[in-house]
C-alpha cells in the first residue's frame, strides 16, 4: 500500500523570462510506514515538490499534468478548502527554519490548541493532548511550556515543538523539509532519532527532504535523487548507496565530505551548474555536466521506467 503516489507530475511557474519548468515528469511512491528521502542540491525542485503536494504553490505556479494520489484523493484536483482539510490532519509538515516556524506573538499552548480546531475534544482535553505531545518530543516541564512564547525556547527546542505540532493529529504522512539543516550536529542526531521513534510509534510515513547524504542514509528506507526538477534515480537506500547507477548520483556520493579518508586540500565537486530551467535542453538534463556523456544524450531525453531501482540515463540498461 502506498500512502502517496506521485505520477508524472509537471509543474511550471510563469516568470518574466517565460515559463519555468520546475518539475518534469516526477514519479515516485511513498509506501506505508516507510521513510522516503528526497535528495538533491539547492534549486532541484525539492521545495516546489512539497508545495505542490500541500497545495501551497505560489500564485504564479501551476500543476500542468500528472497526479498526486493520497488515499482516494488526487491532490492536484482538490479545491483549496478540501486541501486545507487534509493539511495538518492527514498530511503534516515540519519546515527547515525552526527559528521562524512558530508564531512569535501567540503562546505555544494556544498555537497547539488552534491546530486541534477540527477535534471534538474539550479545551482542557486538548491542552492535555498538547502536553502529551510536548512530553513525547522531550520538552522539559511541558505544562508550563504551554504558557510560554516561542522566543523563550532554544532553536532545537523550537524544532521539537514544531515536530510535536506536526504530529499532533497523527497524520498519515509527515513531510519533513530539511528539518535538521539549521541545527548543529549534536542536535541533528538527536532530532533524527526523535523523528525515527515518533514515526515508529505513530506509524506514519515520512517524506524526508534533505541535501545531507549522511542523514538520508541513516534515516531513510528509500531514496529519490532529484536533479533540476527531474527524478534521476530512485531505489532503496541500500541499492542507491551501494550501487548508484545514474552518473549524478555517483558524483553526488563521491562529493560527500564524510566519505573522505585523510586530509585533502580539495573537496570533490561536480563541475558546471544547474541549467536554466526556462530553457531545458532537448536531451538529458545532466548531459552538460556528465562524465559519461555520449552523442545520444544531447538529443533524446532518457526516461525512467516504473518500479524498483531505476535511473534516468541512457547508459544504464534498466
Amino acid at each position: 500500500m502506498n500512502v502517496l503516489e506521485i505520477q508524472d507530475l509537471n509543474v511550471t511557474f510563469a516568470t518574466e523570462g517565460g515559463p519555468l519548468h520546475a518539475l518534469r515528469n516526477v514519479s515516485f511512491d511513498v509506501p506505508e510506514h516507510r521513510i522516503v528521502g528526497v535528495v538533491g542540491e539547492s534549486g532541484c525542485g525539492k521545495s516546489t515538490l512539497i508545495n505542490a503536494i500541500l497545495g501551497l504553490l505560489a500564485d504564479n505556479g501551476q500543476v500542468d499534468s500528472g497526479r498526486i494520489l493520497f488515499g482516494d484523493h488526487d491532490l492536484t484536483r482538490l479545491g483549496p478548502l478540501e486541501m486545507q482539510s487534509l493539511r495538518g490532519l492527514r498530511i503534516s509538515t515540519v519546515f527547515q527554519d525552526p527559528m521562524g516556524a512558530l508564531n512569535p506573538v501567540i503562546s505555544v499552548g494556544r498555537q497547539m490548541l488552534h491546530i486541534q480546531y477540527r477535534s471534538d475534544l474539550g479545551r482542557s482535553e486538548k491542552n492535555a493532548r498538547s502536553v502529551k505531545m510536548l512530553r513525547r518530543v522531550r520538552i522539559p516541564d511541558p505544562e508550563s511550556a504551554l504558557d510560554r512564547y516561542p522566543h523563550e525556547f532554544s532553536g532545537g527546542m523550537k524544532q521539537r515543538i514544531a515536530i510535536a505540532m506536526a504530529l499532533m493529529m497523527e497524520p498519515a504522512l509527515l513531510i519533513a523539509d530539511e528539518p535538521t539543516t539549521a541545527l548543529d550536529a549534536t542536535l541533528e542526531v538527536a532530532t533524527i532519532e526523535l523523528l525515527q521513534d515518533l514515526q515508529a510509534q505513530i506509524g506514519c510515513s515520512v517524506l524526508f527532504i534533505s541535501h545531507h547524504l549522511g542523514v538520508i542514509a541513516e534515516l531513510c528506507d528509500d531514496v529519490v535523487v532529484m536533479y533540476a526538477g527531474e527524478v534521476v534515480e530512485r531505489g532503496t537506500t541500500r541499492e542507491l548507496f551501494h550501487d548508484p547507477r545514474h552518473p549524478y548520483t555517483e558524483r553526488l556520493l563521491r562529493c560527500d565530505p564524510a566519505g573522505q579518508s585523510g586530509r585533502t586540500r580539495h573537496l570533490p565537486t561536480i563541475p558546471g551548474e544547474v541549467p536554466d530551467l526556462r530553457v531545458r535542453p532537448a536531451g538529458c538534463i545532466f548531459a552538460a555536466r556528465c562524465h559519461r556523456y555520449e552523442g545520444i544524450c544531447d538529443t533524446v531525453p532518457p526516461e525512467v521506467g516504473a518500479g524498483g531501482h531505476r535511473a534516468r540515463c541512457h547508459r544504464v540498461t534498466p
Binding site: L56, Q84, T93, D97, G100, L102
Partner: peptide, 15 residues
Amino acid sequence: EASHIRTARAFGLPD
C-alpha cells in the same frame, strides 16, 4: 511572507 505563516497554512488553519 514569514515562514510561520507558511507553517500555519501547512497545519491547515483556516485562511
